[in-house]
Design a protein around this nucleic acid. Structure first.
Length: 880
RNA sequence: GCCCGAGUGGUGGAAUGGUAGACACGACAGAUUCAAAAUCUGUUGCCGAGAGGCGUGUCGGUUCGAGUCCGACCUCGGGUACCA
């Protein structure tokens, strides 16, 4: 009998599937459809083990659903625009287009051997002009529907490189290449009006029954619906009143000062007239644009000298400050601060010597606030000091409602609902993205390009030797006649955020070669995505943008109403993580090292250490032999390697795999050595799919051994027509549990059950006929995970056609019924024995049996139990 | 900072509020072998000679019963609107 040889078997079956066009998705109105989609990859150049895990999960679902009789759509494409291509062009020369398409070819070559059931005829990359041209057409439709507009927005500006930086390119407040302190700068940019859909995107979350609650919660928090009070503070100098929005109007008596954003119109006025204010605002503009930078940075303020009148007491004047932590994007860009009940306000007031006024206390503690703000949940009842709406004891919620009522009746303010969600800024000052199809004409203004001129293709003749957007400095590309008046005009040089590309690719897959963005008949049949699979890191932005886009596409006639919520079910798989190894150069900048360039060992204290392999100069070191840094040095000395200064390698454990941080693990070694089925089986084993896993290759060999064992089990079988009830029962149980595992994304549990089932078969004394039947079912149950091996066994055992086309096995329910049950007996909640009872036994019979149990009799010593709990079919607890 | 998760043997993990540790890795012992590889069999949470006790990040609570529910905290991970 020959050994299982993945190297010859796997390509054989891949060819058989290709020849039979097994995975071609076809519209078949007689069949129910099932659309499985994994988030498409960025073509970084190499697939990593996380991709293998992700796509194998999708493949298990796709193959399983196909066996269940569905017409399956399982496509693949490339999220191909983005910064890394431009970075590569800057770092190593070449062109982003060549780099990207080269990477796509390499990754496709790495993916094909995995034997994924993908309909490759639908493949596309978002940087294909055929794709982004359709995106431009949609953009024009969105413009017509008023879904797009322009306004000013802040960007990270590198004053040395004179270019816009991505948040990722700002490291510790400095530009990644220039090392110069980053500034915030305003540019006119394009926006999608996603905020018009805030309520819709929020309330529709309720209908997403098959989405993880955590994702829905994150999106709801992100949209951030709040009800508050909007009103104006009159200025004492008669200037324009300051509108504020607050979610805690009930604390108005605790107001300490008025804070405005450095980007507030009033701040801008002062910037022109007050040099000190201008200096302060300039200070605020230092640093990056991220929320994290703003909120973790030092809170600073500037007293404008302006005063406002408190609306409840015209004699009470409050100072107006400019504060760097107030965002112009949220509310009105101005607040009143209540330091007693907001920690940030309190810290600020203590720093600048502003008053702190308590407005309410806990019922049992009236200590005034000192260094810690009193911020109870809004549902807690508190005692009010002097509430203007006449409250004494009430919850925060009641007080807020009462206050809004009071103010509305008094006529100086209004209850308002606001959302935190901001409009989606889609402009990018970069080359490698989808050009925004508009023209700036001196006479006509901003004019959309004519659809017949689409796609507006990116010019190929660009260079990346200087920072900035090559489209801006291209000699001719910008020049174009105005689509409206025909006069010489200029193209927009901003390109689109890559999130635009990934916000509708799922729809394009339903008709990837159509001459319009979608084909309605195809979209009607294939949409929605029945199962979407991707990383939790996309829980907010990508998934929210996609939900918005589907709605916008419906508005513009590109998707049916039924596809407004495009993903029926979502599964967020965990990430495969790996340690990052870093050292520092002489300027203190981080240098990242590949895992294969590092020797890692654990010393006797359990401390992890690492050294660069180059420092070991090729000496063979077994990390298990190294117990401490000094023992490593002695070993190196013994091996004749001269003592030298060596960098200590810093280890950052369990970080998301990222090419730029060089902690990406390549799966090709495993595939080369053991085959795709082993890699697939391995990534599905052990870890629950939703959990992050630290990458370790130990266990790959065990997976390979198991698959060999299953093959031998099949290969060594003889013939016979005998049957075996025990094996049939084990088969029925395996079918039930493996199926349940797949249906609930418990692939690790399915794998464990398959191990158990295979062990049961190999240990069974049943005849060849009975075993043959069991092994055939085993092969079928394994086929979504190890499709090549399963086909080989299926063919060997005389199965009809391809196992990929065989219907999913069904469990014989009659065999799953148990007649006796073993029930554990607890005494005071601790397990002390067990009894066997018939499945039909009444509660009374179980109680009798339990009380007659040796351990119970002994513990009772003739007394009556205090309580006797019988959970039928489960457990008995005797309380003494 | 803010929002969302996760934490169980040496390791990955299993467990509708009902026998904690299924299944696998590793380790150890044995069989087979001239020997090894491969394969097969067995043992394996910790403490204890044993009886037994202790055990699911920490502390507290609810319950007849908590890994699971509630509260506080610790650590790690993801997101934080220009990484994708």
């Amino acid at each position: 009998m020959s050994r299982y040889n993945a190297r010859t078997v796997e390509p054989k079956w891949q060819k058989a599937w290709d020849d039979a066009q097994t995975f071609l998705a076809t519209r078949d109105d007689a069949k129910e459809k099932y659309y499985v989609l994994e988030m498409f990859p960025y073509p970084s150049g190499r697939i990593h083990i996380g991709h293998v895990r992700n796509y194998t999960m999708g493949d298990v679902i796709a193959r399983y659903k196909s066996s269940c009789g569905f017409s399956v759509l399982h496509p693949m494409g490339w999220d191909a625009f983005g910064m890394p291509a431009e970075n590569a062009a800057m770092a190593i020369g070449g062109h982003p287009k060549e780099w990207t398409y080269g990477n796509i070819a390499a990754m496709r070559d790495q993916m094909k051997p995995l034997g994924l059931s993908i309909d490759w005829t639908r493949e596309f990359a978002t940087c294909d002009p055929e794709y982004y041209g359709q995106q431009q057409a949609m953009f024009i439709d969105f413009m017509e529907k008023g879904l797009v507009y322009r306004k000013n927005a802040t960007v990270n500006w590198d004053p040395v490189d004179m270019t816009v930086l991505a948040n990722e390119q700002v490291i510790d407040g400095k530009g990644w290449r220039s090392d110069a302190p980053v500034e915030r700068r305003e540019l006119t940019q394009w926006f999608f009006k996603i905020s018009d859909w805030s309520e819709e995107l929020l309330s529709a979350l309720d209908g997403l029954d098959n989405w993880p609650d955590k994702v829905k919660l994150m999106q709801a928090n992100w949209i951030g619906k709040s009800r508050g009070l909007q009103f104006a503070f009159e200025r004492t100098d008669g200037g324009e009143a300051i509108e504020v929005y607050t979610t805690r109007p009930d604390t108005l008596m605790g107001a300490s000062f008025i804070g405005i954003s450095p980007d507030h119109p009033l701040a801008k006025e002062l910037e022109a007239s007050d040099p000190k204010a201008a200096a302060f605002i300039a200070e605020c503009r230092k640093g990056g644009t991220t929320a994290e930078a703003l909120e973790t940075g030092e809170k600073i303020g500037y007293d404008t000298g302006l005063k406002v009148k408190h609306p409840l007491n015209p004699d009470w004047e409050l100072p107006v400050w400019v504060a760097n932590f107030i965002l112009m994007d949220y509310g009105t860009g101005a607040i009143f601060a209540c330091p007693a009940h907001d920690q940030r306000d309190l810290d600020f007031c203590r720093k600048y010597g502003l008053p702190v006024i308590d407005t309410f206390f806990a019922l049992d503690d009236q200590t005034p606030v000192t260094t810690e703000a009193f911020v109870p949940p809004k549902t807690d009842t508190v005692k009010w000091v002097d509430h203007f709406a006449g409250l004494d004891v009430a919850t925060g919620e009641e007080a807020i409602d009462a206050t809004i009522d009071f103010v509305e009746k008094a006529g100086w303010g209004q209850g308002v609902t606001k959302y935190r969600l901001r409009d989606w800024g889609l402009s990018r000052q970069r080359y490698w993205g989808c050009p925004i199809p508009v023209v700036h004409c001196e006479d006509c203004g901003v004019v959309p390009e004519k659809k017949e001129n689409l796609p507006i293709k990116l010019p190929d003749d660009v260079t990346f030797d200087i920072p900035g957007n090559p489209l801006d400095r291209h000699p001719t590309w910008r020049d174009t006649p105005c689509p409206s008046c025909g006069k010489a005009a200029k193209r927009e040089t901003d390109t689109m955020d890559t999130f635009v590309d990934s916000s509708w690719y799922y729809a394009r897959f339903t008709s990837p070669h159509a001459s319009t963005p979608t084909d309605m008949a195809d979209a009607e049949y294939w949409m929605n995505v029945d199962q979407y699979i991707g990383g939790i890191e996309h829980a907010i932005l990508h998934l929210l943008y996609s939900r918005f886009f589907a709605r916008a596409m419906h508005e513009t006639g590109h998707l049916p109403a039924s596809a407004k919520e495009p993903f029926n079910a979502l599964f967020t798989q965990g990430m495969v993580t790996h340690a990052i190894y870093q050292t520092y150069d002489s300027n203190g900048r981080r240098i990242y090292h590949l895992p294969e360039d590092v020797i890692e060992f654990t010393d006797l204290d359990g401390q992890k250490n690492a050294l660069l392999s180059v420092d070991v100069q090729g000496a063979k070191i077994d990390p298990d032999d190294v117990v401490s840094m000094s023992s490593l040095y002695s070993m190196l000395k013994i091996k004749g390697i001269a003592e030298q200064r060596r960098d200590t390698v810093e280890i950052i454990p369990s970080a998301k795999m990222s090419k730029s941080k060089k902690n990406v693990v390549d799966p090709v070694d495993i595939i080369d050595q053991y085959g795709a089925d082993t890699a697939r089986w391995f990534v599905l084993s052990d870890s629950p799919p939703e959990r992050d896993v630290e990458w370790t290759a130990s266990g790959a060999e065990a997976a390979w051994k198991f698959l060999g064992r299953v093959w031998r089990l099949a290969a060594e079988l003889g013939d016979g027509d005998d049957t075996d009830t025990d094996l049939e029962r084990a088969t029925a149980q395996a079918i039930r549990e493996v199926t349940l595992g797949i249906e609930t994304f418990g692939f690790n549990k399915s794998v464990a059950k398959l191990y158990e089932f295979a062990n049961t078969i190999s240990k069974s004394k049943a005849g060849a006929g009975a075993k043959r039947k069991a092994v055939k079912t085993l092969a079928q149950l394994m086929s979504p995970m190890t499709p090549h091996l399963s086909e080989e066994i299926w063919a060997h055992l005389g199965g009809e056609g391809l196992i990929a086309n065989a219907p999913w096995p069904e469990a014989d329910e009659a065999l799953l019924v148990q007649d006796t049950i073993t029930m554990p007996i607890q005494i005071n909640g601790k397990r002390r024995g067990e009894i066997d009872v018939s499945a039909e036994a009444s509660k009374e019979e179980v109680e009798k049996l339990a009380l007659a149990h040796d351990a119970v009799v002994k513990a009772l010593e003739g007394r009556e139990p205090k309580k006797l709990i019988v959970v039928p079919g489960r457990i008995v607890n005797v309380v003494i």
